[in-house]
Design a protein around this nucleic acid. Sequence first.
DNA 1: AATTGTGAACCTCTTCACAGCT
DNA 2: AGCTGTGAAGAGGTTCACAATT
Lengths: 206, 206
Amino acid sequence: MKKISESTVKRLSQYYRILTDQIEKGRETISSHKIAEINQVTAAQVRKDLSFFGSFGKRGLGYNTVALRKKIGDILGLNRTWNVALVGYGNIGRALLKYDEFRKQGFLFQVVFEADENKTGRTDGGVEIVHTKDAPSIVASKEIEIVIIAVPAREAQKVIDYFIDLGVRAFLNFATTSIHVPEGVVVKNENMSIELEALSYFLTNE
Amino acid sequence: MKKISESTVKRLSQYYRILTDQIEKGRETISSHKIAEINQVTAAQVRKDLSFFGSFGKRGLGYNTVALRKKIGDILGLNRTWNVALVGYGNIGRALLKYDEFRKQGFLFQVVFEADENKTGRTDGGVEIVHTKDAPSIVASKEIEIVIIAVPAREAQKVIDYFIDLGVRAFLNFATTSIHVPEGVVVKNENMSIELEALSYFLTNE
DNA sequence: AATTGTGAACCTCTTCACAGCT
DNA sequence: AGCTGTGAAGAGGTTCACAATT
């Protein structure tokens, strides 16, 4: 499979969201120009992004919204559910657990891992909170595919290494620290401070 | 001021964090190579990023950690505090309010705006929760510079337009929707679903 | 007439490589 | 000898422009 850029993948997510929206509004076809306008990119960009995966439109007419959404869903792996584990039942972890978007997109929390024994042994929203040391059996039995890291920065690398050993290859990291992983494992960072600092830069220099 | 790329600004944030860390560890100088290794970029990238703003190193020796951190802090506007308002006292909003990183970096929540009257009129962690309709006077009196949007997607554009009218020029948006703003206003999106979808793409295609 | 799909041109960002300083 | 700062080369991503199709 040819190399697709990070930016293209992110834009596909956005096109997918726009299509969902347009389908709800009853629209049956859409042009690259219209997608572009909503998403603030160029129409050529939209067409180029899609062209990496095939020809989904009809010249003169545009794209069928339902078919294109389905197609992008296949590309991104969204026409299925994913088993997700959360590590860290603190402030951020609790909010993520309740964050409905994830479930709506098919990312299902199957378990919460937590190192503090005072917090384990209960459930929250139907999800069990278990001790991190029990992860080996649970990651296997619940077939966990994606792990969300919501632990303090100093723990993050250690926790990720631990789950890599258990066979997990995809992480969403909320800790504000640089993570190193081997080939074949991917970590996406959700570093909220960095975005605020970009705003600070803008206000300072613009 | 010459145009600095988004990527450079984000990397500066990361260098800043690394320097803070290295200073705590008692290190007085650091080479571009060392910064690069921690951050997983090339040494040339580090030097190039810094070169847009000046010459901060000593050939043969590297950079003085304290001086470089101070310099990057000046560039990013981090050697000061920023007055921040949160809009939306829901699930995500509450977690952000308690998220200590922001305060540590000098981003201070001065007020929470909320449209549901059942939630207004109290304080949380010393921050008042007031009705959004009172924003005009409060944005001015508290000198709000950055607004964090944690409202449902369908409200986000409307809320941002409202605060633009009140003179706010910088937003951090947690709603999963495409936002349009005029020249001179900046919105950074913290779209947690997009990162998960990128993981889904990786697991599906790798 | 409208709109796609795409090679080519263009632009931007990253890496190389080395002169120059400590 | 070690490491920075930077012009030049290289790689990668975006936009243009137009032939092809409905």
